[in-house]
Nucleic acid binder design. Sequence first.
DNA 1: TTGAAAGCGTTACCAT
DNA 2: ATGGTAACGCTTTCAA
Lengths: 345, 345
Amino acid sequence: MARSKVSISDIAKQLNISTTTISFILNGKAKEKRISDKLVARVLKKVKEEGYIPNMVAKGLRTGKTNIIGLMVEDISNPFFASIAKKIEEKAHHNGYKIVYCSTENDSERAKEFLTMFQTLGVDGCIIAPTMGMEEDIRDLVEKGMDVVLLDRKFRNMSADVVMVNNEEGMYNTVTHLVKEGFKKIAFIALALDKPEKEDRIIGYKEAMEDNGLEAHVFPLPFRVEHSEYVKEISDILNNYQDFDAMLFGTNYLGISGLEAIGNLGLRIPEDLAVVSFDDHDLFRIYKPGISAIAQPIEEISQTAIDTLLDRLGHNDKQKVNRMVSLATTLILRGSTERVVKDKS
Amino acid sequence: MARSKVSISDIAKQLNISTTTISFILNGKAKEKRISDKLVARVLKKVKEEGYIPNMVAKGLRTGKTNIIGLMVEDISNPFFASIAKKIEEKAHHNGYKIVYCSTENDSERAKEFLTMFQTLGVDGCIIAPTMGMEEDIRDLVEKGMDVVLLDRKFRNMSADVVMVNNEEGMYNTVTHLVKEGFKKIAFIALALDKPEKEDRIIGYKEAMEDNGLEAHVFPLPFRVEHSEYVKEISDILNNYQDFDAMLFGTNYLGISGLEAIGNLGLRIPEDLAVVSFDDHDLFRIYKPGISAIAQPIEEISQTAIDTLLDRLGHNDKQKVNRMVSLATTLILRGSTERVVKDKS
DNA sequence: TTGAAAGCGTTACCAT
DNA sequence: ATGGTAACGCTTTCAA
């Protein structure tokens, strides 16, 4: 580490005063401790001259606060999480906090390692988009007193705040819209990390199909590292069941892989197949035709998550009841879901 | 901070041995210090039982190493940087390092703040994609002994390692290719943070145009926060100079804004206008037609940057001469640059 | 083969 | 209004 040569005691020596006084001044307690303005000025001047920079590590050891927040998401390179990360970092920085991040890759072993890392690093709190199999570990963490904000997944009886998106409703409304438009054979390519019957997006889809008297066609895909594998699987699905008139994708990367598969097969959107994807993406806006998307409110998710955490970190009010915020999705309609009456010829 | 209740001295007390011994054992010095296997086993067992987790803050204070690396990029939510961040984090984690990141937004004031943050946090080293106006501050940092790896921009006489991409050559080759294909009126929409005559991509473009006896048309745009502003500016350019047959974009987000502008104006790619963008992107691969791109080797950039830094952090060999790695770009040809002979009718 | 104690830079309690 | 000093949890030198 490039240790700044000058410490608080160097300044103290040079000015012939105590480190205590300097610490008070540097921490804005000069008034409270009734330190003379003259001395304050003298200290501040010296501090600037010497280019003194406080050592957060020492401070952290003494105070038990590192001003670091841990952020754990599925994949920091996914635009959805990257945008959230950026917003959270901005807000955190504005409040004097730094962010250390990690990508779980939906691997619970990795995730556990990171949880340990957060503890040994001494983060003040963390924001976690949990993967399957993390419930117990997160519970332990919370019981140790760590402030945790959960993204997108809640656990029963855990005293952590939660920021959710109403996935079920978002999906339900989307299917309803498609049905109104006249689509009937609607497939759902879903990312299923959990059991399908526990995945909200799948539940919403099935419910809507059922309520409309239609048959549900869910294709739950497990997590894949290589996107080319998704392309292949989706191509297979399209080849084996050629009579779908609409296809839903459960995440932005499934949607992207889907577009690639559809393009490769030479299918026209929306004439041959209507398309909607969860999570909006630059690509969906600019693609021709535009791809309708179920957009998550990234701004609000980030804002709520970091606000909730900072709030808790600020007032160490452990009594306060946990928040559980559920945000609505927005169905953005674009060309990919416009009903085109097929010419039967 | 959720402080883990159990410290090294708790274990020591319970086992009736000294903290020294435990420290040795935990740091793999048991053999070296010839501590009995029996004791080692006893300690390890206890440590596991008690769920002891070392406190990196205390460790950091004592050793002067935090095992934290600072990562500073223009915008962590840009897929280009997000991918780099992910790769770097992976590799760092594998070597016991954590990453704290920040987005400069091309704002040198923000950037300076972050540099200070890195110091007060005590990061062991950092990877920086510098913005204009940071040269002096980075130089100070390096002189204080911080290990710094620069991404994509070098400074004269600075003892920092540099990982560059050969922007000039990438651009030159692209223009050359377009000319060979028969394009003549080639415009370049460039992001110009520095003076245009110092931007490698602009230099490469101009040189190639000149070498082919063509007139250069550079439109240097300053950094904008809102992408809609780019769309507007690019639309204006397209409206005012309607005889371009090809358009180059200096970054992926300029390219995306460009596609939006082109789409809005109803121009056909590549019939009315060929398009190439710097930085590949999912969108460019999947768009119809595919958009040719000058791809930066993200994998190699990340790998080289983190390897270089870890190397330096490992062997504190300050004597070692600085590395300056320059990586080649790849021109990925897609439909957007296929020459279509226009029907004059 | 193991332990005592100093010290990393800061804060905060208790003095004065 | 200001200062002395213990303490935070760990590593490391020196001693035994």
